[in-house]
Amino acid sequence: KLLSSIEQACDICRLKKLKCSKEKPKCAKCLKNNWECRYSPKTKRSPLTRAHLTEVESRLERLE
């Protein structure tokens, strides 16, 4: 599967780190437990900047 097509777990399953069936409108866990089942939009991760990478590398060197 391509990364862009990976389905996201519902908010509660993601928060509780449960295996989500990803069914809509309610996944199996939410249906069974009568929880409100919501699927928040995916958040875009910002790409690493060179400055951040350099900072992490220098912190790693100090720890070694």
Rank of each mutant, 00 (worst) to 15 (best):
K17R: 07
P47F: 03
L15W: 11
V56C: 13
L53M: 15
V56M: 07
Y39Q: 07
K32W: 07
L18A: 14
K44C: 09
A51W: 02
Y39K: 02
Q8R: 06
S46P: 09
A51S: 09
L60Q: 03
R62V: 13
P41W: 06
C27S: 08
H52V: 01
K1E: 00
E57S: 07
L63K: 02
Y39V: 08
E55V: 09
L31G: 14
C10N: 07
N33I: 02
L3W: 11
K1N: 15
R14C: 02
T43W: 02
K32C: 07
S46K: 00
S46M: 07
K42A: 11
R59T: 04
K26M: 13
S40V: 07
R62F: 12
K44F: 08
S40F: 04
I12K: 10
A51K: 12
H52Q: 08
K44V: 15
N33K: 10
C10T: 03
P47W: 08
R62K: 11
P47G: 06
K44D: 06
T43F: 08
L18G: 15
T54I: 06
K32N: 11
R14D: 00
C10Y: 04
K17F: 02
L18I: 12
C20H: 01
L48T: 06
E61F: 13
S40C: 01
E64R: 09
E7W: 12
E64S: 12
E61S: 12
A9Y: 00
L48K: 08
K16A: 03
L60C: 14
K19M: 03
C37I: 03
E57V: 07
K42L: 10
Q8T: 09
K44R: 12
K26H: 14
V56H: 08
Y39M: 06
E55L: 11
T49G: 02
R45G: 02
L31F: 15
C30S: 03
K44A: 13
T43C: 12
L2S: 14
A9V: 09
E7L: 12
L31R: 15
R45T: 05
L48I: 08
H52A: 01
K26T: 11
A51Q: 12
R62H: 07
E36N: 13
W35K: 12
A9M: 00
S21N: 05
R14Q: 03
T49P: 00
E61D: 13
N33C: 11
C30Y: 05
K17D: 02
L60W: 01
E57A: 03
C37T: 03
K32A: 09
R62G: 06
T43G: 09
R59E: 02
N33M: 09
I6W: 08
T49H: 08
R14W: 01
S4C: 12
R50W: 05
R50D: 06
H52G: 01
Y39G: 03
E57W: 07
R50S: 09
R50F: 02
E57Q: 04
L2M: 15
E57T: 03
S46I: 03
L53Y: 03
C20N: 02
K29L: 07
K16M: 01
E61C: 13
C30V: 05
P47Q: 01
H52M: 03
D11F: 02
C10P: 00
S46E: 00
R50G: 00
P47V: 07
T54R: 03
L3C: 14
K17N: 06
S5P: 12
K1T: 15
K44M: 12
L15I: 11
K29S: 05
L60R: 00
E57F: 06
T49V: 07
N34G: 13
K29E: 02
R50C: 02
E23K: 10
R59L: 06
N34K: 13
E61A: 14
C37G: 06
L31M: 14
Y39A: 05
K32V: 09
T49R: 01
K22N: 06
S40R: 05
S5I: 11
C10E: 13
D11E: 02
L18K: 00
C20F: 07
K22M: 04
E23S: 13
K29T: 08
E61W: 13
S4E: 13
I6V: 11
R38P: 06
L63T: 01
N33P: 01
C20S: 05
T54C: 08
L60G: 05
R59F: 03
E23M: 11
S40G: 08
E55Q: 12
P47L: 02
T54V: 05
K29W: 01
L60M: 12
R50A: 02
W35V: 14
S4T: 11
S58L: 13
A28W: 15
R38S: 13
